[in-house]
Design a protein around this nucleic acid. Sequence first.
DNA 1: GCCGTTTTCGGCCCGACTGTTTTCAGTCG
Length: 607
Amino acid sequence: MTNLELAWALTEMGDLLELKGEEPFKVRAYHRAARALENLEEEAASLYARGALEEIPGVGKNLAKKIAELLTTGRSTFLENLRREIPPGLREMLAIPGLGCRSVRQIHQGLGITTLEELERAAREKRIRTLPGLGSKTELAILQGIEMLKEVREQVPLGIARPLALLFQDQLLNIPGVEKVAVAGSVRRGCEMVGDIDLVVAVRPGNQVAEVMGHCPQVKEVLAREPDRLSLRTVLGVKVEIIMVPPGEFAATVFYATGSKGHRKGLLRLALARGLKAADIGLITPRWLAEEEAVKGEAVPGLEKGEEIRENREIEAEPAGSIAGEAAFYHRLGLPYIVPELREDRGEIEAALKGELPRLITVEDIRGDLHMHSRYSDGVETIAATAAAARRRGYRYLAITDHSRSLVVARGLSVEQVKAQREEIARLNDELEDITILAGIEVDILADGSLDYEDEILKEFDLVIASVHTGFRQEEGQIMARLEAALRHPYVDILGHPTGRMLGRRRPYAVDVARIIELAAETGTILEINASPDRLDLNDTAVRLAKEYGVSIAINTDAHDPGRLADMEYGVLTARRGWLEPENVVNTWGLERLLARLKRNREKGGK
DNA sequence: GCCGTTTTCGGCCCGACTGTTTTCAGTCG
């Protein structure tokens, strides 16, 4: 069992205990341990093997025993008993913003409701307001919450799907009769939410794929089993589609299964316009041929029929990240290779035709992380340990940006602590040779639009990120006034997680993203791509708009644990989906150039 | 349920906002 699956099991235990009415500190112990497991760099299974489960912070005798049972049997009697006691629908209700466990219990006991469907009906029939302490606003919140949950039903964030996809890829490669495996679909394109994991497998006859995968510990049930297709559901509830093809059809099938549908159709229309058939390009699998039929007769805007194909001699044969043979399909169409992140039918084919595809940023371009938390606020590690982790990633600089004083839950820093932290950072910078720590802060944009420290304090930092953590429910006018004040502030260098959304859990606050981008361009403020796979904020389309406006971007992990510095890859994927080049991203720059770009330093020198 | 250069018991992040209310409980970050 993977750390992620263990974390999910502990989270579920915590949620069910909370619904049961257990004391809050006990509940929190489960949730804390779950988070520790998620961030753990070593697999819990190997810790268990050397009898060291209790070394995990927040795991004592009791939890170690429960984790051990999960690791050895794949099950938990404790969890199964809880599930029998508490209907699972109640846990789903906790995901509705505004509903806590007290309200859910109230609804369950008062109306006998156990599922989201029953809850929705009761809210529509205005029965929720008959319960003491609940009224019409709560009814509205329930309906809106269910609406949000429906949008992401059957979907999981990329941060869950991608590691699982890679795990399945490894397992498939070890099965007799398997020659090649590739992750395809929305995971390969780097989409923020994933409906199902698509894997393409090149197999020889008589392979064991169906038998072995059906019994793999991550698999809960087999949804469908056909000669060339296996559909599974994992214990985390994610759907996995395994497509099995002869080795000769591998590249074309991966190409097909990567999508998106719009991109595929665009390519087929282009082929038709040039008098080519799918078969001429090498796309001879049944799926491609069926799709070709579907697009016949559709016009191709901006293309002359039979226009001659220009050969592009600069094209590399096997671009990084491509499947062997995939680039050739594009080349036969006279196009350079288009990476999966761009295959969204958002103008990439036109750009490729004109030779105007961006030279996309990669993780290797990143030279530092500008948003990280330490033990001074709600991070789990010391500044020294965080810097060491950043250095191991090959970074040249990092910014420690703890929370400001009014965010008490996160132990926001008092002015005295700010000073102490700055002194510690100065000491560390004296000792460290090949990496620089910037003394930063993530300052709260307060409900009235002011910042959480006075200007005299703010101007002393090397770098200031301003973020909204309160007043999420304000109306657009109010939210925008706060954000505008922050963007216009002379000491705000970066706007952190600009929309405040949490994927599948919380909608953005009432923000006009286009206006934010306009203001960022006007004021020279850098906008963040928060790389945490729970956020990915800004998202891909907003990022692309920002690029068009010439707004600089910082890709930051917001890591509260050095283990999460690796989330950078999700931020970079989002940046790539937003067509960003290294030049657009300030943390690909050298330190001197980065510092000179900050608003605080520009204004000093009169730009 | 975890944890301990104050503690093996008694702490554990706490204050603001909001909805439902006549004085506060629940929820959130």
